[in-house]
Design a protein around this nucleic acid. Structure first.
Lengths: 325, 325
DNA sequence: ATGAAATATGTAACCGGTTTCATATTGTAT
DNA sequence: ATACAATATGAAACCGGTTACATATTTCAT
């Protein structure tokens, strides 16, 4: 079922059908009607692949995320998808898993499929590779040199976490540091650390990955190594929840004995008990803004700025004391 | 940069380059080397769109899910994606939101992009539409007539939930019923109900959607209308957590006063406190099995069975009493 | 040595759209 | 009535691969 079938049915040439379908060039009203009727009768849907081949571009956009299974990313993806869907674009999705080979494989194959743009949240692909792809790119929750990027202010968020614990009287604060090769995780840690070092408190550090099971072990270690911590800043909400559980398991009162702050404000943080105080990132908006920027790039509209930085905010739930207590 | 550029560089015809790249036909060893070298030198990557157009099929597979933001689906999607990625396929993803128009739009555009197969978790598209697409399909977590489908045994799971509460001494059980147009949700409800009606207990029913915020309201209503419930079966884990919160807020002891069972065993259920007892579905495996079945269909291998049904199991955490208490 | 089979490679058509260009017709201003 | 612009439409090339077919060369059995 091709445009030639429709042309035959309507008694015109393929070119005319194309013109009708694309509202381009001149078409006589009667012809237009005949074509439209033939299209309807045959239930014709144009082949996007043929269109894409000739035009050298498609209605496809590639999105590489670290891991859709991490609750931070579905929300991001949804922000992207909703925006693109409204504008008639479709999404090619890949999980990079923080592995260079997978990240690159996805980027390459996306280009081979004629995507018109890419939104990337990758950790191990460098500037040269990305810019050599010669295709509009927006980095999401990641920054690579001067490529357009959408993210939230990790310095401000990280500082905020530290300030809130200081305000709430913590004297010995333990930072749970995530993988330092993940840029935003690195920044939020540095920011918290900087604030705490200015203050008159003891500061401990412990390393963890970003998964629940990984953090479970590290949580045990934390309470053994630094049993006097009265404040904990976790690198993300998942890790914070693991720590929260371990604290409760050890009979520590939260927030009376230990206060805990997470990062991200993923939906889980309001679902745990007690509710997790955390640093909110506007995740959905970040995704949708990235899509918006990308489409602007694609349509050669100039961007006000190559960077779009959202502010973080403190969400006070039940793992921190109320100020004034 | 096309195959003709590579051909020129290697001093051969495009056909020969194609043969080298696809390991088809006869190619002299020296020629092969020359071509490979040219490919490398030019960093040539074949255009999948052109390939797809000629062959009438691609390396793309479409996946329509209700909402990637619902924690059930990322895991499902990941199961699908991992399997496909290993086999060299890429994923086009869409959120159907349970809206017919969006579901159909995605299905249509996927076909227009020459996908070779579709995995669908849709609620409002009928058998005729699906089978008229004339493309391999696997339904996932959904059943439509005799289309191939992967799912878990909702009857068994629903029964299990009821049995576990009965075993644990509940006398007045409230069923929180999800949207009845969602097939698995319907079945699990019916199954629980059937078991309870055979037993000597009071049974209440209350309706809810599947979201946390929706369920929050319904949870309030539940405790007002049926304050004597000592057992609650929720239509999914999210709803169960909302109910759990409301119970705790009202000072009900869980599981001493009220026992709660969820459904799905999404990752959140082990992250809440107290840990949610629930009916486990092997979500990731379902996704990966669906991908496996689809690829078999695509390669015309015959399926042992058009249906693949996983068993559910009871995961005992802290919102149900230990048997013998 | 001879012919058939195997190997090697190029030419051109094809996939299903879009677009350029040529051509024909209609409309309109002078 | 004439000329020029606007309208209408089709033929054919093109996008970048793949493959059927033709052709040439090599291998090998008899």
């Amino acid at each position: 079922m091709s445009i030639r079938d429709v042309a035959k049915e309507a008694g015109v040439s393929p070119a005319t059908v194309s013109r009708v379908l694309n509202n381009s060039g001149y078409v006589h009203e009667d012809t237009r009607k005949a074509v439209l009727q033939a299209v309807k009768k045959l239930n014709y849907k144009p082949n996007e692949v043929a269109r894409s081949l000739y035009k050298g571009k498609s209605k496809l956009i590639g999105l590489v995320l670290p891991d859709i299974t991490n609750p931070f990313f579905p929300e991001l993806a949804r922000g992207v998808e909703d925006y693109l869907q409204k504008k008639g674009y479709r999404l090619l999705l890949g999980n990079g898993d923080g592995k260079q080979q997978k990240e690159i494989d996805y980027l390459d194959t996306f280009v081979q499929h004629n995507v018109v743009g890419i939104i990337a949240s990758v950790d191990n692909v460098d500037y040269d590779f990305l810019s050599n792809m010669n295709i509009p790119i927006v980095m999401l929750d990641r920054i690579v040199k001067d490529l357009p990027a959408v993210y939230s202010d990790q310095f401000q968020g990280g500082s905020l976490a530290a300030e809130k614990l200081l305000e709430r009287g913590c004297k010995e604060i333990t930072l749970v540091r995530g993988p330092m090769n993940i840029h935003p995780v690195y920044e939020r840690f540095q920011a918290s650390l900087a604030v705490l070092q200015e203050a008159n408190v003891k500061v401990n550090k412990i390393d963890s990955n970003l998964s629940f099971n990984g953090a479970k072990c590290r949580a045990k270690e934390l309470f053994e190594k630094y049993p006097d911590s009265d404040g904990i800043i976790a690198c993300n909400d998942i890790v914070a929840v693991a720590i929260l559980h371990e604290a409760l398991r050890r009979g520590r009162k939260v927030p009376e004995d230990v206060q805990i702050i997470g990062f991200d404000d993923i939906s889980i943080s309001e679902l745990v008990y007690p509710g997790l105080s955390t640093i909110h990132q506007p995740i959905y908006q970040m995704g949708s803004k990235a899509a918006e920027l990308l489409l602007k790039e694609i349509h050669n509209e100039k961007l006000d700025s190559k960077r779009y930085k959202f502010s973080c905010s403190f969400v006070e739930r039940e793992t921190t004391k109320k100020v004034g207590d």
